[in-house]
Amino acid sequence: MADSPLRPSSLINTVYGAFLRRLGGWISVADLITLMAELDVDGPAARSAISRLKKKGVLEPERRGATGYRLSPGAQPVFDEGDRRIFGSLEPAKLSDGWAMAVFSVPESERSHRYQLRTRLTWLGFGNIAPGVWLAPGRLLGDARDMLVRLGLSEYVHLFAAEYAAFSDLPGTVSSWWDFPAIEEQYAGFTEAYGPVAAGLTERTAVDGAEAFRHYVPMLTQWRRLPYLDPGLPAELLPADWNAVAARQIFQQLNEVLAPPSLRHVQEVTGLTEA
Protein backbone atom coordinates (compact mmCIF):
# COMPACT_ATOMS: atom_id res chain seq x y z
CA MET A 1 0.00 0.00 0.00
CA ALA A 2 1.04 3.59 -0.54
CA ASP A 3 2.59 5.39 2.42
CA SER A 4 0.54 8.56 1.87
CA PRO A 5 -2.87 8.38 3.56
CA LEU A 6 -5.88 8.04 1.31
CA ARG A 7 -9.23 9.38 2.40
CA PRO A 8 -11.81 6.72 3.32
CA SER A 9 -14.33 8.39 1.01
CA SER A 10 -11.87 8.07 -1.89
CA LEU A 11 -11.37 4.38 -1.15
CA ILE A 12 -15.14 3.84 -1.04
CA ASN A 13 -15.49 5.62 -4.38
CA THR A 14 -12.93 3.23 -5.81
CA VAL A 15 -14.74 0.18 -4.43
CA TYR A 16 -17.99 1.34 -6.03
CA GLY A 17 -16.34 2.33 -9.28
CA ALA A 18 -14.15 -0.73 -9.75
CA PHE A 19 -16.45 -3.45 -8.42
CA LEU A 20 -19.92 -2.57 -7.23
CA ARG A 21 -21.08 -1.02 -10.51
CA ARG A 22 -20.51 -4.44 -12.06
CA LEU A 23 -22.35 -6.13 -9.19
CA GLY A 24 -25.58 -4.16 -9.28
CA GLY A 25 -24.36 -0.89 -7.74
CA TRP A 26 -25.50 -1.71 -4.18
CA ILE A 27 -23.81 -3.06 -1.06
CA SER A 28 -24.90 -3.53 2.53
CA VAL A 29 -23.32 -1.25 5.10
CA ALA A 30 -22.03 -4.28 7.00
CA ASP A 31 -20.24 -5.70 3.96
CA LEU A 32 -18.82 -2.32 3.02
CA ILE A 33 -17.44 -1.86 6.51
CA THR A 34 -15.90 -5.35 6.28
CA LEU A 35 -14.16 -4.45 3.04
CA MET A 36 -12.99 -1.11 4.40
CA ALA A 37 -11.54 -2.83 7.47
CA GLU A 38 -9.31 -4.81 5.09
CA LEU A 39 -7.99 -1.43 3.93
CA ASP A 40 -7.24 -0.38 7.53
CA VAL A 41 -10.28 1.91 7.77
CA ASP A 42 -12.19 1.37 11.01
CA GLY A 43 -15.96 1.29 11.31
CA PRO A 44 -16.55 4.85 12.56
CA ALA A 45 -14.34 6.31 9.81
CA ALA A 46 -16.11 4.22 7.18
CA ARG A 47 -19.55 5.29 8.40
CA SER A 48 -18.48 8.93 8.43
CA ALA A 49 -17.21 8.62 4.85
CA ILE A 50 -20.46 6.97 3.74
CA SER A 51 -22.39 9.86 5.31
CA ARG A 52 -20.27 12.42 3.43
CA LEU A 53 -20.80 10.63 0.13
CA LYS A 54 -24.54 10.56 0.81
CA LYS A 55 -24.56 14.32 1.44
CA LYS A 56 -22.66 14.88 -1.80
CA GLY A 57 -25.28 12.90 -3.71
CA VAL A 58 -22.91 10.09 -4.68
CA LEU A 59 -24.67 7.40 -2.63
CA GLU A 60 -28.33 6.80 -1.85
CA PRO A 61 -29.68 4.63 0.98
CA GLU A 62 -31.60 1.54 -0.06
CA ARG A 63 -32.68 -1.43 1.99
CA ARG A 64 -32.49 -4.88 0.40
CA GLY A 65 -33.10 -7.06 3.40
CA ALA A 66 -30.25 -5.17 5.02
CA THR A 67 -29.37 -1.50 5.24
CA GLY A 68 -27.17 -0.48 2.35
CA TYR A 69 -26.27 2.14 -0.22
CA ARG A 70 -26.34 2.28 -4.00
CA LEU A 71 -24.80 4.69 -6.45
CA SER A 72 -27.10 7.59 -7.25
CA PRO A 73 -28.19 8.00 -10.88
CA GLY A 74 -26.37 11.34 -10.99
CA ALA A 75 -23.08 9.69 -10.05
CA GLN A 76 -23.15 7.21 -12.91
CA PRO A 77 -22.01 9.64 -15.65
CA VAL A 78 -19.14 10.79 -13.43
CA PHE A 79 -17.94 7.22 -12.98
CA ASP A 80 -18.35 6.53 -16.71
CA GLU A 81 -16.21 9.57 -17.48
CA GLY A 82 -13.67 8.30 -14.93
CA ASP A 83 -13.46 4.98 -16.76
CA ARG A 84 -12.59 6.73 -19.99
CA ARG A 85 -9.91 8.81 -18.33
CA ILE A 86 -8.41 6.09 -16.14
CA PHE A 87 -8.43 3.14 -18.50
CA GLY A 88 -8.91 4.67 -21.95
CA SER A 89 -6.28 7.40 -22.03
CA LEU A 90 -3.10 5.54 -21.19
CA GLU A 91 -1.47 6.55 -24.47
CA PRO A 92 -0.58 10.19 -25.21
CA ALA A 93 -2.74 12.19 -27.59
CA LYS A 94 -1.58 12.86 -31.14
CA LEU A 95 -0.83 16.30 -32.55
CA SER A 96 -3.11 15.45 -35.46
CA ASP A 97 -6.03 15.17 -32.98
CA GLY A 98 -6.00 18.94 -32.57
CA TRP A 99 -7.09 20.81 -29.48
CA ALA A 100 -10.15 21.54 -27.39
CA MET A 101 -10.38 25.23 -26.47
CA ALA A 102 -12.68 26.67 -23.82
CA VAL A 103 -13.26 30.41 -23.67
CA PHE A 104 -15.38 31.85 -20.90
CA SER A 105 -16.42 35.13 -19.38
CA VAL A 106 -18.27 35.22 -16.07
CA PRO A 107 -19.77 38.39 -14.53
CA GLU A 108 -18.19 39.53 -11.28
CA SER A 109 -21.54 39.01 -9.56
CA GLU A 110 -21.24 35.29 -10.36
CA ARG A 111 -17.56 34.83 -9.61
CA SER A 112 -18.27 31.56 -7.76
CA HIS A 113 -19.03 30.11 -11.19
CA ARG A 114 -15.72 31.46 -12.44
CA TYR A 115 -13.90 29.57 -9.68
CA GLN A 116 -15.90 26.42 -10.41
CA LEU A 117 -15.07 26.64 -14.11
CA ARG A 118 -11.36 27.03 -13.43
CA THR A 119 -11.38 24.15 -10.97
CA ARG A 120 -13.32 21.81 -13.22
CA LEU A 121 -11.34 22.60 -16.36
CA THR A 122 -8.09 22.06 -14.46
CA TRP A 123 -9.43 18.75 -13.16
CA LEU A 124 -10.27 17.70 -16.71
CA GLY A 125 -6.70 18.42 -17.80
CA PHE A 126 -7.05 21.85 -19.39
CA GLY A 127 -4.14 24.27 -19.24
CA ASN A 128 -4.64 28.02 -18.84
CA ILE A 129 -3.07 29.87 -21.78
CA ALA A 130 -4.56 33.33 -21.11
CA PRO A 131 -7.26 34.86 -18.89
CA GLY A 132 -10.48 33.02 -19.67
CA VAL A 133 -8.82 30.84 -22.33
CA TRP A 134 -8.12 27.16 -21.62
CA LEU A 135 -6.66 24.44 -23.82
CA ALA A 136 -6.58 20.63 -23.80
CA PRO A 137 -5.94 17.80 -26.26
CA GLY A 138 -8.85 17.46 -28.69
CA ARG A 139 -9.95 14.10 -27.33
CA LEU A 140 -11.13 15.82 -24.14
CA LEU A 141 -13.71 17.91 -25.99
CA GLY A 142 -16.56 15.45 -25.37
CA ASP A 143 -15.84 15.11 -21.67
CA ALA A 144 -15.62 18.89 -21.35
CA ARG A 145 -18.98 19.35 -23.05
CA ASP A 146 -20.64 16.72 -20.87
CA MET A 147 -19.17 18.19 -17.69
CA LEU A 148 -20.28 21.75 -18.50
CA VAL A 149 -23.82 20.62 -19.25
CA ARG A 150 -24.01 18.39 -16.18
CA LEU A 151 -22.92 21.24 -13.87
CA GLY A 152 -25.08 23.88 -15.52
CA LEU A 153 -22.06 25.94 -16.61
CA SER A 154 -22.45 25.71 -20.39
CA GLU A 155 -24.01 29.17 -20.74
CA TYR A 156 -20.72 30.78 -19.69
CA VAL A 157 -18.43 28.91 -22.07
CA HIS A 158 -17.65 28.70 -25.78
CA LEU A 159 -16.04 25.38 -26.75
CA PHE A 160 -13.93 25.12 -29.90
CA ALA A 161 -12.26 22.30 -31.78
CA ALA A 162 -8.98 24.09 -32.57
CA GLU A 163 -5.76 23.60 -34.50
CA TYR A 164 -2.44 25.23 -33.64
CA ALA A 165 -1.15 27.27 -36.59
CA ALA A 166 1.76 29.51 -35.45
CA PHE A 167 3.95 31.37 -34.01
CA SER A 168 5.87 29.89 -31.10
CA ASP A 169 7.99 26.93 -30.15
CA LEU A 170 5.07 24.80 -29.02
CA PRO A 171 7.02 22.31 -26.84
CA GLY A 172 8.53 25.20 -24.91
CA THR A 173 5.27 27.08 -24.66
CA VAL A 174 3.07 24.27 -23.33
CA SER A 175 5.38 23.87 -20.33
CA SER A 176 4.10 27.25 -19.15
CA TRP A 177 0.46 26.21 -19.58
CA TRP A 178 0.74 23.04 -17.48
CA ASP A 179 2.74 22.44 -14.30
CA PHE A 180 5.03 19.67 -15.55
CA PRO A 181 7.12 19.40 -12.35
CA ALA A 182 3.98 18.90 -10.23
CA ILE A 183 2.67 16.22 -12.59
CA GLU A 184 6.02 14.41 -12.62
CA GLU A 185 6.15 14.54 -8.83
CA GLN A 186 2.83 12.69 -8.66
CA TYR A 187 4.00 10.05 -11.13
CA ALA A 188 7.25 9.61 -9.19
CA GLY A 189 5.30 9.07 -5.98
CA PHE A 190 3.17 6.40 -7.65
CA THR A 191 6.19 4.62 -9.10
CA GLU A 192 7.99 4.69 -5.77
CA ALA A 193 4.96 3.27 -3.96
CA TYR A 194 3.91 0.57 -6.44
CA GLY A 195 7.01 -0.27 -8.47
CA PRO A 196 8.17 -2.71 -5.74
CA VAL A 197 4.67 -4.23 -5.59
CA ALA A 198 4.69 -4.82 -9.34
CA ALA A 199 8.20 -6.29 -9.22
CA GLY A 200 7.21 -8.71 -6.46
CA LEU A 201 4.08 -9.88 -8.26
CA THR A 202 5.97 -10.76 -11.43
CA GLU A 203 7.68 -13.56 -9.50
CA ARG A 204 4.38 -15.20 -8.49
CA THR A 205 1.94 -17.35 -10.42
CA ALA A 206 -1.16 -16.43 -8.41
CA VAL A 207 -2.30 -13.73 -6.00
CA ASP A 208 -4.75 -14.34 -3.16
CA GLY A 209 -7.99 -12.41 -3.58
CA ALA A 210 -7.84 -10.64 -0.22
CA GLU A 211 -4.20 -9.66 -0.76
CA ALA A 212 -4.99 -8.45 -4.27
CA PHE A 213 -7.85 -6.32 -2.93
CA ARG A 214 -5.62 -4.74 -0.26
CA HIS A 215 -3.12 -3.69 -2.93
CA TYR A 216 -5.53 -2.88 -5.75
CA VAL A 217 -7.94 -0.45 -4.13
CA PRO A 218 -5.29 1.95 -2.74
CA MET A 219 -3.29 1.62 -5.95
CA LEU A 220 -6.26 2.50 -8.15
CA THR A 221 -7.29 5.29 -5.76
CA GLN A 222 -3.87 6.90 -6.05
CA TRP A 223 -3.66 6.33 -9.80
CA ARG A 224 -7.08 7.69 -10.74
CA ARG A 225 -6.00 11.21 -9.80
CA LEU A 226 -3.19 11.18 -12.32
CA PRO A 227 -5.08 11.00 -15.64
CA TYR A 228 -6.83 14.18 -14.54
CA LEU A 229 -3.67 16.02 -13.52
CA ASP A 230 -1.97 14.88 -16.73
CA PRO A 231 -3.76 16.04 -19.89
CA GLY A 232 -2.07 13.34 -21.97
CA LEU A 233 -0.23 15.75 -24.24
CA PRO A 234 1.35 14.47 -27.46
CA ALA A 235 4.76 12.91 -26.90
CA GLU A 236 6.42 15.53 -29.12
CA LEU A 237 5.50 18.22 -26.58
CA LEU A 238 6.77 16.42 -23.48
CA PRO A 239 10.22 16.30 -21.86
CA ALA A 240 12.38 13.46 -23.18
CA ASP A 241 12.52 11.81 -19.75
CA TRP A 242 8.78 12.16 -19.02
CA ASN A 243 8.26 9.74 -16.13
CA ALA A 244 4.61 9.04 -16.87
CA VAL A 245 5.69 6.25 -19.23
CA ALA A 246 7.18 4.09 -16.47
CA ALA A 247 4.27 4.83 -14.13
CA ARG A 248 1.71 3.82 -16.76
CA GLN A 249 3.49 0.51 -17.32
CA ILE A 250 3.33 -0.22 -13.59
CA PHE A 251 -0.35 0.67 -13.47
CA GLN A 252 -1.18 -1.49 -16.49
CA GLN A 253 0.69 -4.46 -15.01
CA LEU A 254 -0.94 -4.16 -11.60
CA ASN A 255 -4.40 -3.60 -13.07
CA GLU A 256 -4.06 -6.74 -15.17
CA VAL A 257 -2.80 -8.89 -12.28
CA LEU A 258 -4.84 -7.55 -9.37
CA ALA A 259 -8.25 -6.56 -10.77
CA PRO A 260 -9.67 -10.06 -11.45
CA PRO A 261 -8.84 -11.62 -8.04
CA SER A 262 -9.95 -8.41 -6.31
CA LEU A 263 -13.36 -8.64 -7.97
CA ARG A 264 -13.68 -12.29 -6.96
CA HIS A 265 -12.84 -11.33 -3.39
CA VAL A 266 -15.54 -8.65 -3.30
CA GLN A 267 -18.02 -11.20 -4.63
CA GLU A 268 -17.01 -13.69 -1.95
CA VAL A 269 -17.42 -11.12 0.84
CA THR A 270 -20.74 -9.71 -0.41
CA GLY A 271 -22.38 -12.64 -2.17
CA LEU A 272 -23.12 -10.30 -5.08
CA THR A 273 -22.96 -11.45 -8.69
CA GLU A 274 -22.28 -9.55 -11.88
CA ALA A 275 -25.32 -7.72 -13.19
Score class of each variant (00 low, 15 high):
residue 208 D to E: 14
residue 98 G to Y: 10
residue 143 D to M: 12
residue 154 S to M: 14
residue 79 F to T: 00
residue 74 G to W: 09
residue 131 P to G: 02
residue 157 V to G: 11
residue 209 G to Y: 07
residue 135 L to E: 02
residue 54 K to Q: 13
residue 119 T to C: 08
residue 5 P to T: 00
residue 228 Y to W: 14
residue 184 E to C: 01
residue 234 P to C: 01
residue 58 V to N: 05
residue 126 F to D: 06
residue 25 G to E: 09
residue 36 M to F: 03
residue 171 P to F: 04
residue 156 Y to K: 03
residue 270 T to L: 03
residue 108 E to C: 00
residue 163 E to A: 09
residue 201 L to Q: 04
residue 208 D to P: 14
residue 106 V to W: 14
residue 121 L to N: 04
residue 160 F to N: 01
residue 159 L to P: 06
residue 162 A to C: 10
residue 21 R to I: 08
residue 207 V to I: 15
residue 71 L to F: 08
residue 238 L to T: 02
residue 59 L to C: 08
residue 188 A to H: 11
residue 136 A to D: 00
residue 126 F to Q: 03
residue 209 G to N: 10
residue 226 L to M: 11
residue 181 P to Q: 03
residue 30 A to Y: 06
residue 171 P to T: 09
residue 197 V to L: 12
residue 1 M to G: 15
residue 36 M to R: 10
residue 1 M to Q: 08
residue 41 V to F: 09
residue 240 A to L: 14
residue 255 N to V: 01
residue 23 L to S: 06
residue 84 R to Q: 09
residue 172 G to L: 11
residue 263 L to T: 01
residue 44 P to Y: 03
residue 46 A to Q: 05
residue 213 F to Q: 01
residue 239 P to H: 02
residue 45 A to I: 00
residue 157 V to L: 12
residue 43 G to D: 10
residue 253 Q to E: 14
residue 16 Y to K: 05
residue 15 V to I: 15
residue 209 G to D: 06
residue 229 L to F: 05
residue 105 S to A: 13
residue 70 R to Y: 03
residue 73 P to N: 11
residue 59 L to P: 05
residue 103 V to W: 12
residue 116 Q to V: 03
residue 99 W to E: 01
residue 27 I to G: 08
residue 243 N to R: 14
residue 93 A to K: 11
residue 47 R to M: 07
residue 201 L to Y: 02
residue 244 A to R: 15
residue 264 R to V: 04
residue 191 T to P: 05
residue 121 L to A: 02
residue 202 T to H: 13
residue 72 S to A: 14
residue 202 T to G: 11
residue 132 G to R: 13
residue 98 G to K: 13
residue 46 A to Y: 05
residue 218 P to S: 00
residue 253 Q to M: 12
residue 115 Y to M: 11
residue 7 R to K: 15
residue 65 G to N: 11
residue 269 V to H: 07
residue 204 R to G: 03
residue 26 W to F: 05
residue 2 A to D: 10
residue 39 L to Q: 07
residue 2 A to F: 12
residue 87 F to T: 04
residue 203 E to P: 02
residue 268 E to P: 03
residue 74 G to H: 11
residue 260 P to M: 04
residue 144 A to F: 04
residue 142 G to I: 09
residue 211 E to M: 09
residue 223 W to P: 02
residue 102 A to Y: 03
residue 242 W to K: 00
residue 28 S to N: 10
